[in-house]
Write a protein that binds this DNA or RNA. Structure first.
Length: 501
RNA sequence: GAGCCGUUAGCUCAGUCGGUAGAGCAUCUGCCUUUUAAGCAGAGGGUCGCCGGUUCAAGUCCGGCACGGCUCACCA
């Protein structure tokens, strides 16, 4: 612990005192109060499966013995017999304990149990008269005492700040939160399988980089003591992944964290997870197909269909998805006319006339993107591949063969939010060096997000990078979409918050 | 960074016109052997986020601060 941190000693409230006292009493009685020798034979789900198909009479005649462990989430005491519910990783199961079956000592132990305690139960399964599957306890053990009271059983933990700061409590008492993160895990698993099935190799490239490139973003800066070296947390893995294309790994993907030192919002967390993948001898057109396949595969698995609720709308993932150029998006969704987007001057006039709060003193391509973000982005609700990106905002993308002011690139929008960004890769080292030089000029002019030149990356291109296409998909936003979550913090277990309190 | 809103018992929340604080769950005591937010009877529990101001009197009004939420800004 650092010198300037003082350990916070909270005073125990009455309920904590009572629980600590109960624990001390057991300890004084010679019990190991933190045992680790209880072996559950069944999870809650397995216990339910063990009774499936068996009639009440069969359960009565042929006992299904189980040993289950979990956290007590509810207790209904009725004198000399009681019901309580335990919760494990898969669900909840009721336990029935009666004094005349388990004996005075065990029932006495049970009397000291509190909501939140982790307990082990052995016994056989039966159904109550309301047909609820229940363990008739023969043995009861305290496995770990819960020293703090749990939130209210009916409303759970509602305070948003407390939910993020004490996610462990949130997960205990709010099942829908657990569900979101289980889905997240499932989506990540599907992604890996999807790419592995297509012969992609999963790799890990540096998160600490001396030259932070691959995206227009402000990096976090850190320092390596032994080398006395300034390092940056990566804003993207792109430049390293493409070095691997040069090296001969023709299909690679990396699913990992990136860090951007920028604002925090319902769509931005300073650290976020992205999958980036690169495929040699493919174009951004191929990635459009791949992206549709990927989303459909995930939707079928986690949502069971292609119609998904999101942010109050119903998103239809039925292929093929709409395509729209940035220009057309401004025309269709921004109410502009052809002449408004024809050149820099007319676009500036349009932006001014609309009262858009954007910097007008920029090149045509940048202004086009800025106007799009103002007037059209939020309206791309159904899945849309946005194309027709200008070269000024795409320093790593391949020029379009017909129009050298444009690049072969798309961004995927769903629900008005960018979920993916992909392009055919620039593999001409001379062109790439020129783009870096332009980025450096922008940097010198004060653009903190412009890519710094990476000489070794250009050298790698000089060895020859196969023509390729690459894409990045924001996993947090992807999970937001598939779980209909309004805030990125709802899909990140421990989102960044100011310390304190 | 700006605007708006919030912060009251362990949790979820009330709190009127400024008059020294309430409910439900949880806790404690007693009763209760098939309950389902179990029930019945009783009890305890508060730095009203923090600091200052106005006032005879502040949870309540005013100012500042902290933390959080939303919107905007920022953000390929």
């Amino acid at each position: 612990m650092a010198d300037n941190e003082t350990p916070i000693v909270e005073e125990d409230n009455e309920q904590v005192e009572v629980r600590k006292h109960k624990l001390a009493k057991l300890r004084d009685g010679g019990q190991n109060v933190y045992p680790n020798d209880f072996k559950p034979t069944h999870s809650v789900t397995q216990a339910v499966a063990a009774a499936e198909g068996a009639s009440d009479d069969e359960l009565h005649a042929n006992h299904r013995e189980v040993a289950v462990a979990g956290r007590i989430m509810a207790i209904r005491r009725m004198g000399k017999a009681s019901f309580f519910q335990i919760q494990d990783r898969r669900g909840r199961l009721q336990v029935y304990a009666r004094k005349d079956r388990i004996g005075d000592d065990a029932y006495g132990l049970f009397q000291s149990f509190d909501i939140g305690d982790l307990v082990g139960v052995t016994g056989h399964l039966f159904r109550t008269k309301t047909k609820e599957l229940t363990v008739e306890a023969a043995g009861l053990r305290l496995l770990t005492k819960c020293l703090r009271p749990l939130p209210e059983k009916w409303h759970g933990l509602a305070d948003v700040e407390a939910r993020y700061r004490q996610r462990y409590v949130d997960l205990m008492v709010n099942p829908e939160v657990r569900d979101v993160f289980e889905k997240r895990s499932r989506i990540v698993r599907l992604l890996r399988r999807f790419f592995e099935d297509r012969d992609f190799l999963e790799v890990e490239t540096p998160m600490m980089q001396s030259i932070p490139g691959g995206a227009a973003a402000k990096p976090f800066i850190t320092h390596h003591n032994a080398l006395d070296l300034e390092l940056h947390l990566r804003v993207a893995p792109e430049l390293f992944l493409k070095r691997l294309l040069v090296g001969g790994f023709e299909r690679v993907f990396e699913l990992n964290r990136n860090f951007r030192n920028e604002g925090i919002s319902v769509r931005h967390n300073p650290e976020f997870t992205m999958v980036e993948f690169y495929q040699a001898y493919a174009t951004f057109e191929d990635l459009i197909q791949l992206t549709e396949e990927l989303f459909v595969a995930i939707a079928n698995d986690v949502a069971g269909g292609l119609q998904l609720p999101y942010n109050g709308a119903t998103i239809d993932l039925t292929r093929p998805w709409q395509r729209l150029t940035i220009r057309d998006a401004i025309l269709v969704h921004g109410g502009a006319e052809e002449k408004d987007v024809a050149n820099l001057e007319s676009l500036q006039a349009f932006a001014k006339q609309r009262g858009l709060k954007i910097d007008l003193d920029v090149p045509y391509g940048k202004l086009l993107v800025a106007v799009f973000e103002e007037v059209a982005e939020a309206k791309l609700i159904q899945p849309t591949f946005l194309t027709g990106f200008p070269i000024e905002v795409s320093p790593l993308a391949r020029k379009n063969d017909q129009d050298p002011a444009m690049v072969d690139r798309f961004e995927l929008y769903i629900g008005g939010r960018e979920l993916a960004n992909a392009f055919s890769e620039l593999n001409d080292p001379a062109d790439q060096r020129q783009r870096f030089l332009e980025q450096m000029q922008a940097r010198a002019a004060g653009d903190e997000e412009a890519n710094p030149i990476d000489d070794d990356y250009v050298r790698a291109l000089e060895y020859g990078m196969p023509p390729a296409a690459g894409e990045g998909i924001g996993i947090d936003r992807l999970v937001m979409f598939f779980t209909d979550s309004a805030s990125i913090r709802d899909v990140i277990l421990f989102p960044l918050l100011r310390p304190h309190r």
